[in-house]
C-alpha cells in the first residue's frame, strides 16, 4: 500500500489492516504498544514471507525492539493481532527462536557458554530429564556453527562482545526453530563476528527458515537482507529491499535525522 492509497482508505473510513496471511511465518495486524500514554508502536501491519531474511529499520526510539518484544508477548500490547504460521503466538512458541539484545543480561551470571546454549534445549529437557551426552553434543554442534566450540567451558563473563552475541545465536540455533527473531544482532560486534553471524543467518534462510532482524546499520541492508520493514512508531513501508529500501522511504522514516548526503552514500537504486 502506498502512502496515497493509505490516505484514501483512511478517508473512506474502511479498515487499513490487510487480512492475515494464513501461511505467513509472521504476520502482524494493527499492533499498538504504549509505554504510559505515549505509543511506542502505533497500528503497525506487516507480514514476512517464508524463506526471507528481513530487516526492521528505523531511527532510535522508533519502536523496533518494542515491536519484536510485543510480537513475542514479552510486553503487553494495546491492540493488534499476531499470527505465526497461521497460529497465535502461544501455540507456535516451539517454532520461534528469539535472540535478545546482548546488553539485556548480566554477563557475570554464574553460567558457562555450554550451559547458555543448553537453555535452548530446555523444552526438550523439561523439568526432570538429565542432560545427556546427546544434548551436550547438540549444544556443541550449535557452538561449532558459530565458531565457538573451543569456548564451551568458559564462564560467560570472559567473552568479548562479539563472542557473547555468538553464544546467544547458538542458543537460538539449539531450538531448531522455523522463525528466528533477532534484536540488533550486529550491535557492537567485531567485523569477524558480523561475518560469522550473517553466514549462519544466510544458512538458515537456505534451510527454508525465516529470519527477521532489528537492524541499525543502513550501509549493510542491501547486502544482508532481501526484505525490509521501515518503521518510525508507525509503519512507513514494507516489502522487498529493491523496491522498498528507497531514498524516499528512508527520508520519510528518518525525517531530518538522515542527511541527504548519507542517503546518497547508500547508492540506492531510486525506484
Amino acid at each position: 500500500m502506498t502512502a496515497a492509497s493509505l490516505e484514501l482508505a483512511a478517508e473512506g473510513g474502511r479498515t487499513l489492516h490487510s487480512a492475515i496471511d494464513a501461511d505467513s511465518p509472521l504476520s502482524i495486524q494493527g499492533m499498538t504498544v504504549s509505554y504510559g500514554e505515549k505509543p511506542a508502536v502505533f497500528s503497525v501491519d506487516a507480514a514476512f514471507p517464508r524463506e526471507s531474511m528481513a530487516a526492521i529499520i528505523g531511527p532510535n526510539g522508533a519502536g523496533k525492539s518494542t515491536l519484536l518484544k510485543a510480537v513475542l508477548g514479552i510486553i503487553p500490547t494495546l491492540s493488534g493481532k499476531v499470527s505465526v504460521f497461521g497460529e497465535p503466538v502461544e501455540k507456535a512458541r516451539r517454532r520461534i527462536a528469539y535472540v535478545p539484545q546482548r546488553a539485556s543480561v548480566d554477563w557475570d551470571f554464574p553460567t558457562r557458554v555450554i550451559d547458555v546454549v543448553m537453555m535452548g534445549l530446555y523444552r526438550e529437557l523439561g523439568l526432570l530429564h538429565f542432560e545427556t551426552r546427546r544434548h551436550r553434543d547438540m549444544a556443541c554442534d550449535c557452538l561449532e556453527r558459530v565458531g565457538m566450540a573451543n569456548f564451551a567451558h568458559r564462564q560467560i563473563g570472559q567473552l568479548s562482545g562479539g563472542q557473547q552475541q555468538r553464544v546467544f545465536l547458538a542458543r537460538a540455533l539449539a531450538q531448531d526453530a522455523d522463525l528466528y527473531l533477532l534484536d540488533e544482532p550486529f550491535a557492537g560486534v567485531d567485523a569477524t563476528t558480523e561475518k560469522a553471524i550473517i553466514h549462519v543467518l544466510k544458512g538458515l534462510k537456505e534451510e527454508n527458515r525465516t529470519v527477521v532482524c532489528v537492524h541499525h546499520d543502513l550501509a549493510t541492508v542491501t547486502e544482508y537482507f532481501d526484505r525490509v520493514l521501515l518503521i518510525n512508531v508507525r509503519k512507513v513501508a514494507d516489502g522487498p529491499v529493491d523496491t522498498t529500501f528507497t531514498a524516499e522511504n528512508l527520508q520519510t522514516t528518518y525525517g531530518g535525522r538522515l542527511a541527504t548526503a548519507q542517503i546518497d552514500q547508500l547508492q540506492l537504486s531510486l525506484a
Partner: peptide, 17 residues
C-alpha cells in the same frame, strides 16, 4: 531450569513460553 532462565534472561524466558 525455569528459575535459572528467568534469573539470567527473563525476556528470552518469556519468548520461550
Amino acid at each position: 531450569r525455569p528459575m535459572t532462565l528467568v534469573a539470567f534472561d527473563p525476556d528470552y524466558a518469556a519468548a520461550y513460553g
